[in-house]
Simulated assay, not measured.
Amino acid sequence: MSIATHRFSNEEYHQRFTEGDKVELIDGLIYDKMVIGPKHRSAVNKLIKIFVLAGYDVSSQGPISWPGNEPEPDLTILAAGTDPTDRHPLPNECLLVIEVSDASLAKDREVKLPAYQQAGIRTWIVNLQDDVFEIDGRKTKTASFDDVTINIDDIV
């Protein structure tokens, strides 16, 4: 017995779901979004402050779009001057995506990270279960992006 699945295009996704739905499109499939807990929210807010103070354009909880995909990362560092009002940012407009992960850690590692990598998007996972960054498959207490260096203790 096989299980039927349907891969959605971006257009079908927008026809079936609205902004209020707690879902995201990844590799043509619909995934439920997790509830945001206090530690998660706090870490995202601290990361926003760090990157904004460093002069970066930051998007939080906003979609990135490419065929079959509209994930909503916790934080996206956008290329300077990239904040389109008529569409979502494209992968080549994203300098860095950060997923803050607690209950969503397995999904972020196994579903979202491969999709970001396939699209050529540099990605960090902030692993709140172990209080570490996960970058290129390794765990570290410190992460650097251009002139910004962040210690995990500064955000958790």
Score class of each variant (00 low, 15 high):
Asn127Ala: 02
Ile48Glu: 13
Ile125Glu: 05
Tyr31His: 08
Thr142Gly: 05
Ile48Pro: 08
Asn127Tyr: 09
Leu75Lys: 09
Thr123Gln: 04
Val126Ile: 10
Glu99Met: 02
Gly68Asn: 11
Leu95His: 01
Ile3Pro: 00
Ile135Thr: 02
Ile48His: 13
Asn92Thr: 10
Tyr13Ala: 01
Asp153Thr: 15
Arg122Val: 04
Asn45Glu: 11
Glu24Gly: 05
Asp108Cys: 01
Ala103Lys: 11
Glu110Asp: 13
Phe8Ala: 02
Ile50Ala: 13
Asp57Arg: 15
Ser9Gln: 06
Asp27Arg: 03
Asp131Cys: 11
Leu95Cys: 06
Gly68Cys: 09
His40Lys: 07
Ile36Asp: 02
Asp147Trp: 12
Val126Tyr: 08
Leu96Asp: 06
Arg7Gln: 09
Ser65His: 11
Lys39Tyr: 12
Ile30Glu: 01
Leu25Ser: 01
Lys139Met: 10
Ile135Ser: 03
Pro84Val: 07
Pro91Lys: 10
Phe8Thr: 01
Ile36His: 08
Leu96Ile: 06
Leu47Ser: 05
Tyr13His: 04
Ala79His: 12
Thr149Glu: 14
Asp86Asn: 15
Glu99Ala: 08
Glu110Pro: 01
Val58Glu: 06
Ser101Leu: 06
Thr82Asn: 08
Leu75Val: 15
Leu113Cys: 00
Phe17Ala: 01
Arg109Ala: 00
Gly137Pro: 01
Ala4Ser: 13
Val132Ser: 09
Pro71Ile: 13
Arg122Ala: 03
Lys39Ala: 13
Arg7Ile: 00
Asn69Pro: 11
Glu93His: 09
His14Lys: 11
Glu110Ile: 01
Ala80Pro: 13
Lys112Gly: 03
